[in-house]
Amino acid sequence: MSVAFTKEESSETAAETLLPDRPISPHPNLVSEAGLKALELQLRQARDAYEATTAIEDVNERRRQAATPLRDTRYFAARVHSAQLIPHPTSTDTVSFGSTVTFSRDDGRVQTYRIVGEDEADPKAGSISFVSPVAKMLIGKAVGDIVEAGGQELEITAIS
């Protein structure tokens, strides 16, 4: 039955349950081993959250509660399916995906980041996405190389 022929409350509920999909990046879905495991865990958690909503008797409330886990399940299933596992780098000669790179800024700050996939990136925790502007500039560079980022010079001091 069309929502147009139901109570107004139901049309509001229908609008709440039709959440748009989470945007999927146009970049290749490169992941580290830890990143892939995290995506698989998030997919399981989203599926479990969706399954938990099946016990809700009120159909409108069940739809409301299921909307986010259903959207997350679609997102994480797509990300797991498209994941390209990149092995940990075997060389520390140059910065690459999976490298941990330390650099000093010309203002004296020293920062260390691991270059990872988009879903795994968390700058506050010390990881940046391989598609971030800083990572793009650092990839392929060696210790001692200097790159310019945001009007500052970054000198690579260590790669591990």
Rank of each mutant, 00 (worst) to 15 (best):
V80C: 07
I24M: 12
R22G: 00
D48W: 05
S129R: 02
L19A: 10
T94P: 09
L30C: 00
E51K: 10
K141M: 06
I128M: 08
P123D: 03
D58V: 06
A15P: 08
A149E: 13
H27E: 10
V143C: 08
V143E: 12
T112V: 01
S99A: 12
A38M: 12
S132K: 05
I115D: 12
M137R: 09
P28A: 15
G98M: 09
H81V: 02
L70R: 14
P89T: 08
H88M: 10
D21E: 14
T112F: 05
P133T: 07
S2N: 13
S11Y: 01
P28M: 09
K136H: 01
I159D: 03
A4Q: 12
D122R: 03
K124A: 15
R63A: 14
S127A: 08
M137P: 00
F130N: 08
A15L: 13
T6N: 09
T94E: 09
A38D: 12
E118N: 04
R47Y: 00
T112W: 07
G140H: 04
E40K: 15
T17G: 13
A149V: 14
K141P: 11
I159S: 03
G144P: 07
P28Q: 12
A38R: 12
A121H: 02
T13L: 13
S10C: 08
P87S: 15
L70D: 10
E57W: 02
A14H: 13
L154D: 02
G98T: 10
E153S: 10
T17K: 10
S96C: 09
A83G: 05
V59G: 08
T73A: 14
T54G: 01
G151E: 04
S160G: 07
A52H: 02
Y50H: 12
P20W: 02
D72L: 15
D106S: 11
V147N: 05
A77N: 04
S91W: 05
P20V: 01
A67N: 13
T68C: 03
I146W: 05
E33N: 04
S11L: 01
I128N: 06
T92D: 11
V95R: 08
G117H: 04
L43D: 03
L154P: 03
R63Q: 11
P26F: 09
H81M: 10
I159L: 02
H88Y: 05
R63F: 05
T17I: 10
Q65G: 01
R71G: 06
L138A: 03
Q45R: 14
D122P: 00
S96G: 15
A83C: 06
H81N: 13
T100Y: 11
S91I: 10
P87E: 15
P123Y: 03
L18W: 14
P69R: 09
A125E: 04
S2V: 08
I139W: 00
D58L: 07
V80F: 08
P133S: 11
S2A: 13
F5D: 12
A52V: 00
E155G: 04
D58C: 04
G151K: 04
E57Y: 05
D21M: 05
E9Q: 15
D72Y: 06
A4D: 14
T157I: 12
L43N: 04
V95K: 06
S160L: 06
T112C: 02
R105W: 06
S96Y: 06
E57H: 09
D72R: 15
V95A: 12
A52G: 03
A66F: 07
F130H: 11
K7E: 14
N60T: 07
G144C: 02
L154Y: 10
